[in-house]
Amino acid sequence: MVVDANKTLPAHEKMRLETAYFDTNVNIELTTEVEYHSQYQKDMQLTIDETELPHHASEQYHFAEAVDMLNTYASKMDTIYHQNDSFIHKI
C-alpha cells in the first residue's frame, strides 16, 4: 500500500513504513495451520491457532507495528508447533 501511494507522491512527501499508519478500521485475521503428509496415511490438516486483531481508525495503527506483530506471532506459532504438535523436534 505504501509503495503504491508513494508512486503518486512527490519525493518530499513520500511515506516510510515506520511512519505510515492505517487511517481506516483494520481487522487482521491470522490462522496458523499445519499439514502433515505421509506415505502411508491420508494427508491431515491441523489448525493450531486462530486470532483476530481489530484496530479502530482512531488508534493510528502503524504499518511497522503490524509487521512487528506478524513477526512476533510467527515466531510464537513456530514455538507452539514444535512444543505441542510436531513429532519432529528441534535439537
Rank of each mutant, 00 (worst) to 15 (best):
M1W: 02
M1K: 09
V2E: 14
D4I: 03
D4P: 01
A5Y: 02
A5W: 02
K7F: 02
T8D: 13
T8P: 02
P10I: 04
A11R: 12
H12W: 10
R16G: 12
L17W: 12
L17N: 07
E18Y: 03
E18R: 12
T19P: 00
T19V: 03
D23P: 01
T24L: 10
T24F: 11
N25I: 08
N25E: 07
V26I: 15
V26A: 09
V26D: 03
V26W: 06
N27C: 12
N27Y: 00
I28D: 08
E29L: 09
E29D: 13
E29F: 04
E29K: 12
L30G: 04
T32V: 10
V34N: 06
H37I: 05
H37E: 08
H37C: 00
Q39L: 05
Q39W: 01
Y40T: 13
Q41E: 05
Q41H: 02
K42M: 01
K42L: 02
Q45P: 06
Q45I: 14
L46W: 01
L46V: 10
T47V: 09
D49S: 10
D49W: 04
L53Q: 08
L53H: 07
L53V: 09
P54A: 00
H56D: 15
A57K: 15
A57V: 08
E59I: 06
E59V: 06
Y61N: 05
Y61G: 04
H62S: 03
H62W: 00
F63N: 12
A64W: 04
A66W: 00
A66R: 05
V67Q: 04
D68V: 04
M69H: 04
M69P: 00
L70T: 00
L70M: 14
L70E: 06
N71S: 11
N71M: 15
N71Q: 08
T72K: 12
Y73Q: 00
Y73K: 09
Y73W: 15
S75Q: 11
S75L: 12
K76L: 09
K76H: 06
D78L: 14
D78A: 09
T79V: 15
Y81G: 03
Y81R: 11
H82D: 02
H82F: 03
H82M: 11
Q83I: 07
D85K: 12
S86K: 06
F87G: 06
F87R: 14
I88F: 07
H89A: 09
I91L: 11
